[in-house]
Amino acid sequence: MTKLIPAPWWSAFLLCFWLLLQNDVSVGTSLLGLILAILIPLYTLRARDYPTTLHRPLLAVQYFLILLVDIVVSNLDIALIILMPRKRIQPALIEFPLDLTGSVPITILASTISLTPGTISAELGRDGRSLLIHALNVQDPEATVQQIKQRYERRLKEIFQC
């Protein structure tokens, strides 16, 4: 089983992707999708030099839903700042100490930061232990860091167990 399907989540993702691309669920498309979902990971597995395991798939779904809500909130937030005539904003460059290790979790965290309210990840520190964040409008930078830690980093830590 592990030999045939070395990366089950990846295969599941590829199958869903294929069905979305076809925009049609029938025996034929599902079968072809299933074959592709098994063959592609087998062929490309050698190129994956970052072993990552999804330990808590349900938590990952929850994380994704939280992210969706936050993206909508951040959109409204930024729209408000843009539309407010001459509203003074207080930007800041903040250093965010990382507790996560591993390239995949850090990439996900950095993308999350860029998609959520008022922050963009700008650079990963040379030692890989901190992220530089640009925040558009913060009064209390420490609170922003704590919020990201509580809301996203803690969950990612649990999902990937690192």
Binding site: P91, A92, L93, G125, D127, P141
Partner: peptide, 16 residues
């Protein structure tokens, strides 16, 4: 150049 309001809170700027 950044906006004059920007607070630069980098503790170790050489890292970036």
């Amino acid at each position: 150049e950044l906006n004059e309001n920007t607070k630069d809170l980098r503790k170790k700027p050489e890292q970036y």
